[in-house]
Design a binder for these strands. Structure first.
Lengths: 248, 248
DNA sequence: CCAAAAGTGTTGCAACTACACCCATGG
DNA sequence: CCATGGGTGTAGTTGCAACACTTTTGG
């Protein structure tokens, strides 16, 4: 896997990749954010594109560098290319540069104009081991509807990504990528509810999921809880693929 | 409007914009293609992005430069960033460079690696006045399902664009942008059928369109035809906007 | 027994499909 | 009159939403 050093790499100029990394934690949809070192500015996980690197590989690499994960559900959704996406960032850049012990003219790479290709990733947040880079000194999973003002237009990127996620939840079975290998039906329902932003009727949801014929019920059940334990389900990869290809 | 000279412009390196310009002609969905000068290679209308230019403005400019049209339905749909999108193009580049009287090393800008942001445009093909640039010596509207092997990955770009167009036909009323101001119901139906790639039942289609409450029927009718003349319809902008915003 | 989990049955609505049928109009 | 265009009626289907209800099971 590739060089992690953003500053020394042989990158394409003026282009970057930003990843909206979604995770599901405590019944909430969260986004992984990074905080600039010695600074209060938070941002998405982003990176540059190697001169000999596919754009998609760059996104995979960024995801891998920050989370340690590979083979993740990753979708390109929009490219952000307005000049004004940098507006308001100049002061922030100054803060960041100063905080990093660099002069503003010496390190103006951040102030250059960047066109950013937006990807969203769906991960099992329990599997994520966050690795910070030299630009950041903190990370956090933030609830999608409690996100502070971020670097550049990253708030808009998240919003746009969420819209795309929403529209692909049924056709691409996207929600399952946010859950661990096995899960209960009510956990699955919570994921759907969070992504869609509305509550669903349990019985109808259950019927719909089962009728898709993509789930295996594991006969082993939760241990420990009081009362009846919920069943665990697992996405059947073969059935899921059959479903996805039948939907065209 | 901007400088038309691609070679002298102050452009961002490694990034381009490609426009799939759709038009509707003789009951067929067509794409506007350009032929490289003294060469047999056809390509989409493309261009570069000015250092001080929004990406979307670059797409609008490219569209305007080739068609003379402004205020056109234009949608970004995907960014193509594989290294291998250039594969197979090297020989073509050589042909093109030679044909243009340039040496290959002197003019290797075409052989550079480009990431291309794909847009599709929907135009009334009767309004298009094609203007060639210094790279091309011919243009043509080609039927979407009869397109020859194109420059780079332009075939794939068209295919992907068409998929996106298809999925937005109902929610964004995209089809109307391919027709002139006034049109008959059967013309409209043909547009839908061509984009969706299947035949529709006339009566149901008519009912559906009328029930959207977005059309005005013009009492003036076709002149000249034998038998009863069809009514003309016009998209009512206000009603259409109401529809679009109600759909959310 | 109780409480939580899992699942079925039923009703009604809305949208879409297929198709039969009728009216309008220009020649 | 006929051929084409424009439109309604209606029956069947499907998917979904709402909600009542039953069964299972751990303690």
């Amino acid at each position: 896997m590739p060089n992690r050093d953003v500053l020394k790499g042989d990158w394409l100029p003026n282009i970057s990749v930003d990843c909206v990394i979604f995770g599901f934690q405590e019944n909430h949809l969260k986004v992984l954010l990074l905080k600039f070192r010695n600074n209060k500015v938070w941002s998405l996980a982003g990176g540059f594109i190697g001169k000999e690197e596919d754009v998609e590989d760059a996104a995979k690499r960024v995801l891998w560098q920050r989370t340690g994960l590979e083979n993740i559900y990753l979708q390109q959704f929009h490219t952000f290319g307005d000049l004004k996406r940098n507006i308001g960032a100049i002061e922030k850049h100054q803060e960041i540069n100063l905080a990093m012990g660099r002069s503003n003219d010496d390190l103006n790479w951040l102030s250059l104009r960047y066109i950013s290709i937006g990807y969203y990733a769906l991960v099992d947040y329990l599997k994520v081991k966050v690795t910070l880079n030299e630009l950041s000194d903190d990370s956090a999973w933030m609830d999608v509807d409690q996100i502070p003002a971020l670097f550049l237009d990253h708030n808009e990127i998240i919003k746009t990504g969420l819209v795309h996620l929403r529209s692909s939840i049924d056709t691409k079975l996207a929600a399952f990528n946010l859950l661990p290998e096995t899960f209960t039906m009510s956990e699955l329902q919570k994921v759907y509810e969070t992504i869609l932003g509305k509550v669903l009727v349990r019985t109808n949801f259950q019927r719909k999921m089962l009728s898709l014929d993509i789930l295996d019920r594991i006969e082993k059940k939760y241990s420990g809880g009081a009362h009846k334990a919920p069943y665990l389900y697992r996405l059947d990869r073969k059935k899921a693929e059959a479903f996805l290809s039948s939907a065209l």
